[in-house]
């Protein structure tokens, strides 16, 4: 799955390289900047990956955590080992978070590499119109990866909880991914404005605040608090469900 995520920036870079001209204001944000500066490949890939590809892969990993072991039957052997149920949940969740870190870093690093390979690299224009050096820009992209990882942490906790509900990993994965889509759909409906700050996907695109000058940390903080809330609630739900669950698979 990491390879599939790495393919996103590569695909974007190759397509842009092969096409004659990208008109500004069309397609994903930053797409039109790539020919001038390869560093925008990673940013574009992140914009493309956030609504679907990242939730998809993280949903697969998080939905598989417990249900996958149950489906294979290995869950009973882990518990008899004994792994301890809380420890198993914590380790599984940390595994999902490590995947989130790897997934976002893969997009940034693969994007930076292919961008440097196919396009010129130089000082980067931030959203505010200010220009920063390539090194600082790469640092900001790593910050973006950190932001997106945090964004996905609460979502991964939701997936962990769903994964404790069933022995069918595919069902847990599908339900988790569907929730990610539903959250984004709800977030786009102005009639539900009261709900928006509570949706785990609400701050997903605000990683752009790290590309402003000066950097706005408000969304990072608000996002971290929200995701921590999701982790607390769904972590507790997963514990409540799994600690007393009869493992019959």
């Amino acid at each position: 799955m990491l390879a599939a995520l790495a393919a996103i920036p590569v695909l974007i870079a190759v397509v842009v390289r092969l096409s004659a001209h990208v008109p500004p204001g069309r397609g994903p944000v930053f797409l039109d900047r790539i020919t001038q500066n390869g560093m925008f490949v990673a940013a574009t890939a992140m914009v493309v990956a956030i609504p679907l590809f990242l939730p998809l892969t993280v949903g697969v990993v998080a939905g598989d955590t417990v249900a996958g072991e149950a489906g294979m039957g290995t869950l009973r052997y882990l518990l008899v080992a004994p792994a301890g149920r809380i420890r198993l949940l914590v380790v599984k969740y940390l595994g999902a978070v490590v995947f989130c870190v790897a997934a976002t870093l893969v997009i940034v690093l693969a994007g930076s590499a292919i961008g440097a390979l196919l396009f010129p690299v130089g000082p980067v224009t931030l959203l505010s119109g200010d220009t920063v050096g390539a090194g600082q820009a790469e640092w900001r992209l790593v910050l973006v990866a950190a932001y997106v990882t945090v964004s996905l942490a609460g979502f991964a906790a939701v997936g962990l909880f769903i994964s404790t509900l069933t022995d069918a990993p595919v069902g847990a994965m599908a339900a988790t991914v569907v929730l990610a889509i539903a959250s984004q759909v709800l977030d786009s409906l102005p009639q539900l404005a009261w709900l928006h700050p509570w949706l785990f996907s609400h701050y997903w695109f605000d990683f752009a605040d790290l590309l402003r000058q000066p950097v706005t940390w408000d969304s990072f903080g608000a996002n971290a608090v929200l995701q921590a809330g999701y982790l607390a609630v769904f972590g507790a739900l997963a514990y409540g469900r799994f600690a007393s669950k009869d493992v019959l698979s």
């Binding site: 294979m72 039957g73 290995t74 009973r76 080992a81 004994p82 792994a83 301890g84």
Partner: peptide, 26 residues
């Protein structure tokens, strides 16, 4: 214990499976 048939990760070797299950006990 052997409960209701064996269950292992098909993508790991027999030895790796045993290593993983043994490591599951902290």
């Amino acid at each position: 214990a052997l409960v209701e048939g064996p269950a292992f990760y098909p993508f790991l070797s027999g030895r790796a499976n045993l290593h993983r299950l043994d490591a599951a006990d902290a």
